[in-house]
Design a protein around this nucleic acid. Structure first.
Length: 156
DNA sequence: GCCAACGTTGGC
DNA sequence: GCCAACGTTGGC
């Protein structure tokens, strides 16, 4: 048993928000079509902590916490012709894309905005992919120290 | 293997 | 809506 790790996962709230997760409790994280992000999901273990990030919104930032509820398995949407995530090169014998299930933990009273996060770039480190220039990675690792710092930015 | 063209992400 | 940065595709 490896020890608990931490991640950050982005979603556009018009697509799927922390409120949606609160309602459904557990959700398969469909639609990741980036190999680096997929590879991070393959490393996830049940119980790992997830920062739920809203992108493409008025105040981009972390809106709450979730946790990994199931380890990686093939993303079914890659096989669904009508899905916007359909991938004609994927087969059931040789899937390309995987996902994890994510469960709701809690919602922040106020988001930890990207702007605030940038203000702590020195402490977070320049290798932190969320604020690295040009990085668009939608699933990324967070160290225990970064996790602690980011949670401390939550307005009480 | 190179690289131009294209599509996507995501902040602003 | 704009656009910089990035990843992928496909011709050669």
């Amino acid at each position: 048993m490896t020890r608990k790790r931490y991640w950050l996962m982005k979603s556009e709230p018009t697509d799927f928000s922390i409120e949606d997760l609160e309602r459904v409790r557990t959700e398969p994280w469909t639609g990741v079509r980036n190999y680096q992000a997929r590879n991070f999901m393959r490393q996830m273990q049940v119980g790992d902590g997830v920062l739920f990030y809203h992108s493409n919104t008025d105040v981009p930032g972390i809106y709450g916490i979730a946790e990994v509820a199931a380890t990686a398995y093939p993303d079914p949407t890659q096989f669904e012709k009508k899905s916007k995530y359909f991938d004609e090169k994927a087969t059931r014998e040789q899937p390309r894309w995987e996902l994890v299930d994510v469960s709701y933990v809690r919602k922040f009273a106020a988001p930890v905005a990207l702007e605030d996060i940038r203000g702590h770039a020195d402490a977070l480190g320049e290798e932190f992919a969320l604020i690295r220039k040009g990085s668009r990675l939608s699933v990324l690792p967070v160290t225990a120290a970064q996790w602690k710092l980011l949670l401390s930015l939550e307005k009480k």
